[in-house]
């Protein structure tokens, strides 16, 4: 192999010394660099293409078809096939937000307490048995969650509360089960990563385990715990299938938690097959997708912000 230019200084010396400092790994280095660069390029192009495609379609609703932005975001009626087509997406936006917020509200305390139990109270058993079980929960396909929701949650709700059992309540219960592993796993990692010195410092001052947990452990890890909740919410926001199976899918803002409602994702999956590419109805669905995408970005930013606060 040729001596690279960097080795110029050595070249003055004898040939054997120069060889001793040769760079036999240049090709390996380059292969590695090029390969990893290609991988990242594929990722960037894919993401860029998705964002471009969704935006161009989603924005066409407003710029080409003349639907007003306020009418879409604030409109209460979704009747794309009516005599006067109406594209009010507020019921879907409301459904998405209410199900994911309620799901997070239910799953966050459960997940955090489970994480506290696994890391602070029974670390051995928690690590060996509970954590794998929770990770297993994360691997269950969403259709199974939806099916369980349909055959267990909905009938139970129907028996206890007025209405058919379907609706926001059923949707958020199913979602809370789905995001529980996300919240628990992130909370567990955060709690386990807490420096031992902090807890010992608290114990050494005569604090009990509970005092240490709620005065030191939880406040210190709060940003990471919230990161888990936001990631869980973002998963709930994007989940389509399981919610769609139990929420009822009528495009109205419901009057109670037990009345049929709809979400952005379920509206897209249900309607997409029935529309013609390029039609206003189709573009309006892309607008819904654009809303979903923007919300995902918001969630990512919130997570970033929390992580930065955590590092400090």
């Amino acid at each position: 192999m040729e001596q690279p230019a960097v080795m110029n200084k050595k070249r003055v010396q004898t040939g054997s010394t120069t060889r001793a400092f040769a760079k036999p790994h240049v090709i390996e280095e380059w292969v590695g660099k090029v390969y990893t660069a290609l991988c990242i390029l594929v990722l960037v192009i894919t993401i860029g293409a998705i964002v471009y495609f969704v935006s161009s379609r989603g924005l066409a609703t407003f710029f080409v078809d003349g639907v007003s932005l306020g009418g879409l975001l604030g409109g209460l009626k979704w009747e794309p096939e009516g005599d006067i087509p109406l594209y009010g997406a507020l019921p879907f936006i409301f459904g998405s937000f209410s199900t994911s917020v309620l799901a997070a509200l239910m799953a966050a305390p459960l997940g955090m307490c489970a994480a506290v139990f696994m890391t602070q109270i029974m670390p051995g058993f928690g690590k060996k048995v509970l954590q794998p079980v929770i990770e297993l929960l994360a691997g269950i396909p969403s259709v199974v969650f939806g099916f369980v929701g349909l055959s267990v949650v909905v009938p139970v709700l129907r028996a206890i509360f007025p209405g058919q059992g379907i609706g926001i309540a059923a949707g958020s219960i199913v979602l809370s089960l789905m995001i529980l592993p996300t919240i628990t796993t992130i909370a567990t990692d955060a709690l386990a990563a807490l420096p031992r010195g902090l807890k010992e410092g608290s114990f050494a001052l005569g604090a009990t385990r509970w005092q240490t947990i709620y005065r030191i452990v939880l406040p210190t890890t709060l940003p990471s715990l919230l990161t888990g909740v936001v990631l869980g919410m973002s998963r709930a926001f994007g989940e389509a299938l399981a919610v769609q199976m139990v929420i009822g899918n009528s495009p109205h803002i419901p009057h109670s938690l037990f009345e049929s409602a709809s979400t952005l994702t379920s509206a897209i999956t249900l309607d997409m097959g029935n529309t013609v590419m390029g039609s206003t109805h189709n573009n309006a669905l892309w607008s819904l997708a654009l809303i979903l995408l923007s919300m995902t970005f918001v969630f990512v930013f919130v997570v970033r912000f929390l992580e930065r606060r955590n590092k400090r």
Binding site: G197, L198, E200, G201, A204, L205, I216, P219, T220
Partner: peptide, 12 residues
């Protein structure tokens, strides 16, 4: 009371 090897003030 106890003082440890690594200073361990609480993040407060």
């Amino acid at each position: 009371g106890m003082v440890f090897q690594q200073p361990n003030p609480f993040p407060k």
